[in-house]
Design a protein around this nucleic acid. Structure first.
Lengths: 295, 295
DNA sequence: GATAGAATGGAACGTATATTCCACGTTCTA
DNA sequence: TAGAACGTGGAATATACGTTCCATTCTATC
């Protein structure tokens, strides 16, 4: 059953072999191949049953996968990955000292070197996320979710820097079955897109300083049409804040003039999934279809 | 059974507990204690039988040792060390901590998710960011920035879930003065938007599983037109990976089918600002206007 | 030096795990 | 469209593992 003359003997060889033979695999085998490439640690450390459940396949399929690569079973492949893991770990330092090494690494971030730029952004975004956790209360999130849930139709808008957040919200809310209109302003049709908003609808407006004119006007229009407004913004005194039924304030990290969106997207994700849970809990209607875990 | 009131809950606590109680142990137990302190990785990764053989004791003695420390058996202690091992090697700890997170989420699924959801997403995204720092090398970023810098015109595309990332990239690159075309697919004009791509141009394609057809086709078209392709994706075997001049792999956190974008956006931000620095360093031309460094 | 108590080694046990096997479903081919 | 080859899911099986138990050995105390 060995499909190849040579069996991979190191973690790197295994990786290369999978990439090389990926196209010849069946659909399910490709699924496993992706999981192995993307989460090698899981396969190395967890039991087959856990790996199977996590990757959404049967344990037997994993054994088949290993055999397709020339091993006698799944276990030799696991051992390979495990050994590689240990080798990497010990290469970094001796057991206990690795922790100190990491601690030292954490403290030195912040210097202006170009090579460490990624590390710096990671730190900043991490801080922004931590700040979000501390400042955003459960009550605020719960209230926002309630507003969203009660809305007949959801209108979402956000331009310029806020556009990625708005598009993420629009896409995700549609995914969970919420009736959503994405006001993207294509063709200068912003007014028309939002024109039909009514009393039972909700506008989610995402906007950061300097606040886009179109968004401010749209909020005004929505309020005068009797609709409620939920604002995700960076300041409680932003032009939208006074008109909004609720303001979710997000403080993003800023590095040399460029602001991140990590905290905003984390909040957006929370809103979407909280809504999905809320609906699920409310008693699974036919209309709503929150994602279920695979059986 | 439990020799002490408190049972060590982390690798560090375990280490401290062993040191503290070392003198009270019997000869054989001291032998095991030394082995655990000197070779924690072995105990974490190997089976009990292997550890026993390697340390020159009986498996039952190791179980006794664990019980002397207050555990119900050797396995809980092993898990502790394994978790600690992974925590040091954060790129690996990602998988394990996600597992714990999933376990916690499963136990309270349906009812207990009152409002801690935000905190959990913060954790998730923080982990994803940390993982990004560990796995993405400077060389990879530098090479990507070089590709971007050398491109005459930048084409950026990404649909569905990747759309927020693509729109962020497009917006930001335009902000730093890079000639950029955002292939947004409005009006079904994807082909036309990307039709003019040439040999000296670069296409940045953002795509996650399941990969949007339009993006795959666009990458094919770009390659056959002689353009280079930079892919930001979640798997090295994604349809675009083979055709791309470079692949930047990003592992995002995932909850019940909903993936975050925190890591992707952090990477995107890094690329943009790295480009700005690169240009600034190259000798501030008139055309380019990168943001100034902080005062 | 004798005896009580603890500690130890190794076999026996139950459990959890990887693997195998087969009926069923799916996808090409004639 | 019918048939065959292949792929797949899940139960059945064999194996390996952690744990327990008890006879024996060691150690401390009188």
């Amino acid at each position: 059953m060995t499909g190849s003359a040579t069996v991979p003997r190191t973690a790197e060889e295994l990786r290369a072999a999978i990439l090389e033979r990926y196209d010849t695999f069946s659909k399910r085998l490709q699924q496993i191949a992706r999981f192995v490439l993307d989460h090698p640690d899981d396969l190395a450390l967890e039991t087959l049953a856990v790996v199977a459940e996590r990757s959404g396949v049967q344990p037997s399929a994993i054994v088949r996968f290993a055999k397709a690569l020339g091993y006698s079973g799944a276990m030799p492949m696991q051992r390979l990955l495990r050994d590689g893991l240990l080798a990497n770990h010990t290469a970094l330092g001796y057991g206990e000292r690795v922790r100190q090494f990491n601690a030292a690494l954490d403290t030195q971030a912040g210097a202006g070197d170009d090579g460490e730029l990624l590390a710096e952004f990671v730190d900043r975004d991490t801080l922004a996320l931590e700040n979000l956790r501390q400042t955003m209360t459960k009550a605020e999130v719960a209230r926002a979710v309630k507003l969203i849930d009660q809305a007949q139709t959801l209108y979402i808008m956000g331009f310029r820097r806020a556009f990625p957040v708005a598009s993420y919200l629009a896409y995700s809310f549609q995914q969970v079955g919420k009736r959503t209109v994405f006001v993207d302003g294509v063709g200068g049709l912003t007014r028309q897109q939002i024109g039909a908003i009514g009393e039972s609808d909700l506008l989610i407006a995402v906007s950061y300083h300097p606040y886009a004119e179109e968004t401010v006007h749209a909020v005004e229009g929505a309020v005068s049409a009797g609709a409620k407004v939920l604002t995700i913004t960076d300041s409680l005194v932003s032009p939208m804040a006074k008109m909004a039924a609720q303001v979710l304030q997000v403080r993003e990290s800023e590095v040399r003039g460029f602001r991140s969106l990590a905290a905003s997207l984390c909040l957006a994700q929370t809103l979407v999934i909280s809504l999905a849970f809320e609906r699920e809990r409310a008693g699974a209607r036919n209309a709503s279809r929150p994602r279920r875990r695979k059986a």
